[in-house]
Amino acid sequence: MGFVIDPAPTPSVAVAGSEDRFPVRRIFCVGRNYAAHAREMGKDPDREPPFFFTKPADAVVDHGQTIPYPPETDNLHYEAEMVVAIGKGGRNISEADALGHVWGYGTGNDLTRRDLQQTAKDMGRPWDWGKAFDRSAVIGPLHPVSEVGHPAKGSIKLTVNGETRQDADLDELIWTIPEVISILSRSMALQPGDLIMSGTPAGVGKLVPGDVCTASVVGLGEATVTIGNPE
């Protein structure tokens, strides 16, 4: 069997200390998973069931890249996140078994066209145009569980041009990683290659051309991106 057009290359992200790469199947993102961020977005941070949105796999951008300022926005935002890489698939995964499905962890930046997202919210529409655009998932090299374990506390930070904008601790997550994996797997079967961006702390803000933005998670390295001029 052939294809009527050439298949797209498999999206992937780097693996720390290796020339191998992690193939990306889907990217799931957890909305408002830090209480202080929920408050800054005008929402109640009570522990309501988590909600999810997605980004396309080919939205991934490697650490250290320069990307053009995206179109149709005047309010591009950064969002530092810990990234969970799924290595073993499953459906209806229990919290007790959830961490056994994780291949590794990394640092990410969920770039957001905030003005488009807010317009979608106001109109009761999906967030796709605000969240799922080209080059919107900056992801640093992944670290296997065998090397870093399962981070549950420690610093998560983001700087813009060396100035700290986000500074929190992983233990402030409203929904823990085992809970997120378990709840997500009730709605659809997780598969090897899936990534989960676990939520961002308070302090989100605007990026402009020329900015150098670095997200970091303790023990998991950095995810740096430079914002270029619009295409």
Rank of each mutant, 00 (worst) to 15 (best):
G17S: 12
H143P: 07
A168C: 11
E40D: 03
E222I: 15
H101I: 03
A85L: 13
A35K: 06
I86K: 02
P192M: 03
T73E: 12
A137Y: 10
V145Q: 06
P144T: 10
A168G: 08
V13E: 02
L99T: 14
A36M: 14
V15C: 10
H101L: 02
G193S: 11
P49G: 08
I174P: 02
L111T: 01
P126I: 06
T107V: 11
G104D: 10
D169H: 00
F28R: 14
E95V: 15
Y34R: 07
C29I: 05
D6W: 06
E79S: 09
V160E: 13
S216K: 08
I196C: 08
P151K: 08
D6E: 15
E172L: 12
K121C: 00
I196E: 08
P71H: 11
V145S: 02
P201Q: 01
S216M: 09
R113S: 05
L173F: 04
L184R: 02
N33Y: 03
T73F: 01
L220F: 05
K153W: 04
H77F: 10
S185I: 11
Y69E: 04
G64V: 15
V15H: 13
R39A: 10
T224H: 05
E222W: 12
P45M: 13
G199R: 00
P49I: 01
V217S: 02
P201Y: 01
G64M: 04
S187R: 02
A85Y: 01
P9R: 02
S94N: 13
A202L: 05
I67N: 11
G106I: 03
E19R: 04
P209H: 04
T54H: 06
P68S: 11
M188D: 00
A36D: 14
Q65M: 10
I181P: 01
G162C: 03
T226D: 07
R32I: 03
T164F: 10
P7L: 11
A38R: 02
W127G: 04
A189I: 05
I227E: 15
G219E: 06
P209W: 07
S198Q: 04
I27E: 15
A57K: 08
N161V: 03
E179Y: 00
T112W: 04
D46A: 05
R26A: 13
P7F: 00
D128V: 06
